[in-house]
Every structure is written in structure tokens, then in C-alpha cells.
């Protein structure tokens, strides 16, 4: 059992998400930053899609009631076990009775806490992922409350604590958020495309697991109403206000606002991690290039997760 002594903000159980139910109005849910989520699980030798905890901004206080390994990813919060500082992006052992504290994230938004064996949470419609908006999955479809006792899977004491091999930073780090124009770019005059692709947009506090509202020059469409069609995580909807709305993990499955562009899968987690008040710039690439970026992104993530190396315990 892992006791949630003090939950952080929007603490939820997530796994890889639900697929195959969008036609029934059920979007995938799952982590906002899929790469960070997969890494947290891999560090404690779980399947990359095992059930783990997601939080926004601040993690909280957790007490182990059984031995386990834990790992925190998604940012660089101040963390400690019984008051001794530890670091993110590496596995640590937690003995029964020990208390893990995860502070504020600082430069990012979504953090992950994975526990060896995974969180044992009965699936709803094939997944444990919490869909807050629909009240599905996780713990009764909601956030994890203070005092919750989370059952965790088996712990094998022979498995070492892991950390990733250091990766060289890419020579030209991509800072822009890349998009594929469409599906309804024709609902907008070319001047509006130019605004989207040349001006900075600010992340506003109107954000959750469903969508992020951005502020910038108003984006005008020929009409802000279309006959509803399908949406995906990454769809950039533009309602009558002209303020773009990027749909995220808990997106509605259909929508009646025109979608000027779609954020590519490889950049979705990075967009989710932009702090409120931060700015983003969009850059358009074509669909074939975007697919190649996704394939390279998926391969790079797998290469980072396998192999991991044994973390040599140090006394910090």
C-alpha cells in the first residue's frame, strides 16, 4: 500500500490510456506527457504503460506501507525521503514507514510518480486511466484524496534501482511547437495562418487535462461554426473568441469549432509542460514530415527506456 498523506494538485491515477472508444464519445485520457510517464515506469522496471500517478505543479506527501521502488519524472521538483534529498529521473527505494515528499515542479507542469509493481487499480473500459471530465477510471473517476491507500503491485527486492544513460542534447534543440495545418485551415483566411505561425501565444490559466487555452492575436475564421466532426489530442480549435484552444488527453471526441491545425504527437508533451504565462510559437510542417518525426520520436523514446543502467546508491 502507498498512503496518500497529502495529495498534490490534480493527483490522478493514469496508465497508457483507453483506445478504440472514441466512436462512443470516450477519449483516451492517459498522461499529459507520455514520454515522462513511460520513463517513470521504466525506472522502477514496470511496463511503460503501467498505472502510476500524475500531478500538476506539486506532488504531495506519500507514506510507504510496504517496501517498494519509486521514481519521479516530468520536471525537477525538490524531493526527499524522510527529509533526505533525492533527485528526479532515477529510482529510489522506499522502506515501510518512510515518507516521500515531492515539492513544486518549477519549470514544468505535469509530474509523474511511478511505484514498482504499478498501482493496482481495477480497469474501467479496459484502462485505469482517470478521465476526470467523464468521471471514469482511476479512483471513482476523480482525483486521489488525502488518506487514500493505494494498493501497489508486487515488489522484487532483487531488482536494482535504475536510471537512464545520459543522452547528448540534440545539436539544434527544437523550441517551436510543430503543427500540421488542417483539417479546417480553409475555414480561415491566409492572414490568420500567418498570425498563427508568426506570433507568440501565451498559455493562460484556463487549462486542464482536457484543453489549453492560448492567448495571442485573435484568430479570425470565415465562420467559427462547422458541422461537428472528429477531434484528436492536439487539435487547435478556434471558437468565436479567436483564442485558440488546444485539445489534450481528455479532449472531447467531436467538436463544432473549426480546427486550424493539429499539434504533432512528438510535441504534445512539450506543449503540456509549458508553464502558465509561458509563450509558445508554432511552426508548420507537412503531414509526411510530421509522421517521420513521430516515428523518430517513438524510436528515440524506446532507445532511452531500454537499456537503463543500475543506479549506484550514494549517500547524498
Amino acid at each position: 500500500m502507498l498512503e496518500v498523506v497529502r495529495p498534490g494538485v490534480m493527483l490522478t491515477v493514469q496508465d497508457r490510456g483507453r483506445t478504440g472508444l472514441r466512436h462512443a464519445g470516450v477519449s483516451s485520457a492517459g498522461p499529459m506527457d507520455a514520454a515522462a510517464f513511460a520513463l517513470a515506469n521504466a525506472l522502477v522496471a514496470n511496463d511503460p504503460g503501467a498505472a502510476a500517478l500524475e500531478f500538476a505543479g506539486i506532488g504531495g506527501l506519500f507514506r510507504a506501507h510496504a517496501a517498494c521502488r519509486i521514481a519521479v519524472t516530468g520536471g525537477t521538483p525538490e524531493m526527499s525521503i524522510d527529509g533526505l534529498r533525492i533527485g528526479p529521473d532515477a529510482a529510489h527505494r522506499l522502506a515501510p514507514g518512510q515518507v516521500l515528499t515531492i515539492g513544486a515542479m518549477g519549470g514544468s507542469v505535469w509530474g509523474y510518480l511511478a511505484v514498482s509493481g504499478g498501482i493496482d487499480c481495477p480497469p474501467t473500459l479496459g484502462s485505469s486511466a482517470t478521465h476526470l471530465r467523464s468521471g471514469l477510471g482511476g479512483l471513482d473517476g476523480g482525483t486521489v484524496p488525502a488518506g487514500a491507500m493505494l494498493p501497489i503491485g508486487p515488489f522484487d527486492p532483487r531488482v536494482p534501482c535504475l536510471e537512464p544513460y545520459p543522452v547528448a542534447a540534440p545539436p539544434w534543440p527544437v523550441k517551436d511547437i510543430r503543427v500540421v495545418l488542417g483539417p479546417q485551415q480553409d475555414a480561415f483566411p491566409p492572414e490568420t495562418w500567418a498570425l498563427l505561425l508568426s506570433q507568440p501565444f501565451t498559455v493562460t490559466p484556463a487549462r486542464d487535462r482536457m484543453a489549453m487555452t492560448l492567448d495571442g492575436p485573435p484568430l479570425r475564421a470565415r465562420s467559427h461554426d462547422i458541422v461537428s466532426d472528429g477531434t484528436v489530442a492536439g487539435s487547435i480549435q478556434v471558437p468565436g473568441s479567436g483564442r485558440p484552444l488546444v485539445l489534450m488527453a481528455e479532449s472531447q471526441t467531436t467538436g463544432g469549432y473549426p480546427k486550424i491545425a493539429t499539434v504533432i504527437g512528438a510535441d504534445l508533451g512539450r506543449l503540456a509542460q509549458v508553464v502558465t504565462g509561458g509563450t509558445v510559437r508554432f511552426r508548420a510542417i507537412d503531414r509526411d514530415a510530421a509522421e517521420r518525426v513521430w516515428i523518430a520520436h517513438a524510436q528515440a523514446l524506446r532507445a532511452r527506456l531500454h537499456p537503463l543502467r543500475v543506479r549506484i546508491a550514494r549517500r547524498d
Partner: peptide, 17 residues
Amino acid sequence: ILPSGDRALTFRIAEGI
């Protein structure tokens, strides 16, 4: 056929109801 990002496409048959 309208691209909807790098992992989806929209096959549009009609725009009305």
C-alpha cells in the same frame, strides 16, 4: 481528405447535415 495531425486524418464526404 484532410490531414488531422501526424496520426489521424478526416475523410470528409459532406459538409452539411
